[in-house]
Design a binder for these strands. Structure first.
Lengths: 247, 247
DNA sequence: TTCGATTTGTACGTATGTATA
DNA sequence: ATATACATACGTACAAATCGA
C-alpha cells in the first residue's frame, strides 16, 4: 500500500523485496483486506517494475502458502485453520476428528494383493516377499480431503479385508470382521515433505503444498503386528496431537 | 538423458514436463550420477526450449528439495538422510539424538523476561500477562543445525534459568539447578509449514524449505506445568518418532 | 593476482494461450 | 463475444559468483 521505494542493486532481488512487502502488508491488514490482491499489472505499476517481477514475488508467496492465484480470476489471500488429529494408543480416524467435523468419511480408492515391499514385510514381521493386501484410501472431513493412507495387511491372516472394508467403510470395523477385537498403535514416525503429484491430485492441494507423513504399526492385543500404514495429511489442514493415555 | 519429446500445448506446461523428466532421471540414476546437473543452457538445448523454461523446471525441483543451485558453480542433486528425533514422556534433546550423531550442542541465542503471550500463559497455567522468561536456542548435531526452539518458563518460579542455561548448556541441567529433579512431556502438537525467513537463517535452510513445528508442555513430577516450548525442526534433516514407554 | 570463461541470478520486453466474468 | 487476468514461453541483456589458466 505504502509507496515504499524498492532498492535496486541492494543485494536483495526486487522480487524478494516485493514479496516481503506484500507479506507484511497482508499480515498488518493493509493489503488483502477483501481477501484478494490487486491485479499483477496494477502491482507492477505501483512498484515500478515489470509484471514478471511481480509474478516472481507472488510465486514465492504462493509456495509459502500465503497466496493462491487463479487463472482468469485473480490472486487471493489464503487463510486456514487446522483440524487436530489425535494420535493415541487407540487411534481411529473418525473417532478422533468426530467433534471437529460434522461428517467424516473414508473412501476406498484401490485395493488388492501384492508382494510385501521390504519395509512392510519387516514391520509386519513377515518373510520378505510375502503376500500382503494393500488398501489405498482417502479420508475427508466435511467433504474436504484431509489425508490419504496406504495400509498393508498380512494376506493370509486378513484375506478378504478389502471386501470387508468396502462393506463397512471403516478399517476398525473391517478388522473386527476379521476377528480383531482391539488393536493399538505400537509406533509412529512422522516426517514432512512436499506433496507428490499424486498427493496433490488426491488431496486437492496446490503445487508446492506440504504433507505430514506418518508411518505407523498397529498391533493386536497380544502384541502381534497386524497393520502397517503410511498416511499423508494435508499439512495446511491438519495438525497432529500426541496424547498420553496415562497423563 | 533420453531425447524424450516434449508435448507442446498438451495442457501440461513445458517446464513441468521437464521437471518431471529430470526428477525421474535422477531417481533412476540416469542423471546426476556425479551429483551435478548439466548447465542450464545445455539442458535448454537438449529439450529444445528457452533457458528460462529450464530454469522454471529447476526452480520447482529446488522447492521440492531435489536440487540445489549455486550461482557461478552449477546445479546439484541433493541427497540427505534424516535423523530420528524420539518424542517420549521424558524427551531430552541430546539423549535422543546421542546415538545418531557424534556430537550434539544447544546454543543460546537470546533470552530475557517478557509478558507471557496468551497461549503461553494458558499452557503454563499463569494469569494473562504474567512475567515469563523466554529462551531462544538452536540445536546442532555434528555441526548441522537440526532445530530451533523457543521456551518459556514462569519468571517467578525459574528466576535465573537463563543464566543457568548459559552455564550448563542444557535445559535439563538448568532446570535441575532450579530444583526440578524430573519432568515429563504432557502434550505435543505437531504441524508442518514453510520455513520463515528467520528459520531459514538460523537453521541454514534453503528458500521453500519445510519445518516441522512441535508445541509441547513439560510438567514437573507433581503435574504442574513448568515449560512451554515451540520447536522448529528442519524437515529434511529430521523425522520424529513417537515412543510409547509401556510398549 | 588478474583475467576470462563458465554458470547461475535478475530484470526487462513481447507474444500468445487459457480461464473467468 | 469481449474484456480482464493469470499462465506459459520465447527473446535479450547484464550482474554476480566461481574457477582455472
Amino acid at each position: 500500500m505504502t509507496g515504499a521505494v524498492l532498492e535496486r542493486k541492494s543485494g536483495v532481488a526486487l522480487w524478494r523485496q516485493i514479496a516481503d512487502l506484500i507479506r507484511s502488508d497482508i499480515a498488518s491488514g493493509v493489503a488483502g483486506q477483501d481477501g484478494r490482491l490487486p491485479p499483477e499489472m496494477q502491482l507492477a505499476k505501483r512498484y515500478g517494475v515489470n509484471r514478471h517481477t511481480v509474478r516472481a514475488a507472488i510465486g514465492a508467496l504462493e509456495q509459502e502458502g500465503v497466496l493462491r492465484s487463479e487463472q482468469g480470476r485473480g490472486t487471493f489471500v489464503r487463510r486456514r485453520k487446522r483440524l487436530t488429529y489425535p494420535i493415541r494408543k487407540r487411534t481411529r480416524f473418525s473417532a478422533g476428528l468426530g467433534s471437529q467435523a460434522a461428517s467424516t468419511r473414508t473412501r476406498l480408492l484401490e485395493s488388492g494383493p501384492e508382494a510385501a515391499p521390504e519395509p512392510v514385510a519387516e514391520a509386519l514381521g513377515l518373510a520378505a516377499g510375502s503376500q500382503v493386501i494393500r488398501l489405498e484410501t482417502v479420508s475427508e472431513a466435511d467433504g474436504v480431503p484431509v489425508s490419504r493412507a496406504t495400509s498393508w495387511f498380512d494376506a493370509q491372516r486378513f484375506a478378504g479385508i478389502d471386501r470387508a472394508f468396502e462393506e463397512h467403510a471403516s478399517i476398525t470395523r473391517a478388522l473386527a470382521s476379521c476377528g480383531v477385537e482391539d488393536y493399538v498403535r505400537a509406533s509412529t514416525i512422522i516426517e514432512a515433505r512436499h506433496a507428490s503429484a499424486e498427493d496433490i491430485e488426491l488431496l486437492r492441494l496446490s503445487a508446492g503444498a506440504i504433507v505430514l507423513v506418518t508411518r505407523a504399526v498397529n498391533t493386536a492385543a497380544e502384541g502381534r503386528p497386524i497393520q502397517y500404514s503410511e498416511t499423508r495429511f494435508a499439512a495446511d489442514r491438519v495438525e497432529l496431537r500426541i496424547e498420553n493415555e496415562d497423563a
